[in-house]
Amino acid sequence: MATIRKRVRKNGTASFQVRWLQGGRGGTWEAERFEDPEQADTFRKLVDAHKQQWPYGWIPGQGFVEPEQDPDDVPLTDRARRYVDRLTGIDPRTRDDYRREVDRHISLMVHTTRSGLVMPATIGNITADDVRDWVRLQEAGQPDAKPGRWVRRPASPKSTANRHGLLWCIVQAAIDADPPLRTKNCCARPRRLADRYRHAVG
């Protein structure tokens, strides 16, 4: 079984080292270091699931590297802002509204790999499951530590649908780009709402 060792630095900060015997008893000691205890625990579980081997696709010191990733891939939020800035046929107030939707809501999306590792969302790596997780987050909101208060209130069905429609268009623009950044839209197209936002591509 892989274990986690907490190491406290002289400045008071801590790191978390996952250690295991490669292949089990009789193997050599291997280790990977993390700054976050939850990431360390996730990796520990991956090592155990892979029978005390380095998880497939994991590069020591780097994490999972997806070789199929497009070299022009960019963070989802960056691509979303670029899409909004290039829209035509809208007034400045509407553009500001779209930017606010990107910064406050679309920026909350993350990508979860098949192995369960959570990583930043890019325009190329998000999946249908990531979108569903994001929609559930919109619907549930984020309660505050103080009872009865919210960090982020649950979104109404209309607001969730509108944000989903904007996200659909952002992803579709990446598909329509030359050269394309994706081959498939991971968002189920919402009827009518997507057309409201599809003023431009690229």
Rank of each mutant, 00 (worst) to 15 (best):
Y83L: 03
H199E: 06
A188C: 07
D72F: 10
I123V: 15
T42N: 08
R5E: 07
A140P: 01
L137A: 13
A80N: 02
T3A: 01
I126C: 04
P143M: 05
P120E: 05
Q138N: 10
L46W: 03
F64P: 07
A194L: 11
T3N: 02
D78C: 08
G89S: 03
T160P: 00
P71Y: 09
R44I: 00
P75W: 03
Q138G: 04
R9P: 03
R163Q: 08
T113D: 11
K146D: 13
L193G: 00
D41L: 04
N11F: 10
I106E: 01
I90H: 04
G57A: 12
A161S: 12
I106K: 00
T3K: 00
P179T: 11
A2F: 06
G57F: 13
L117Y: 01
G23N: 07
E101F: 06
W168Q: 04
D103A: 03
R44Q: 06
I4W: 01
H50E: 08
T77F: 00
Y197H: 11
G61V: 05
Q69F: 02
A2I: 08
Q53M: 15
E101K: 10
L46P: 00
A188W: 04
R7H: 10
A145C: 06
P60Q: 08
P180G: 09
N162L: 11
Y98Q: 09
Q62R: 15
T127C: 12
R189L: 12
R152I: 02
V18N: 02
A173M: 00
G141T: 09
R132G: 04
A155I: 05
R152T: 00
L166M: 13
N125D: 04
V201E: 12
Y56R: 12
T28Q: 10
D130S: 14
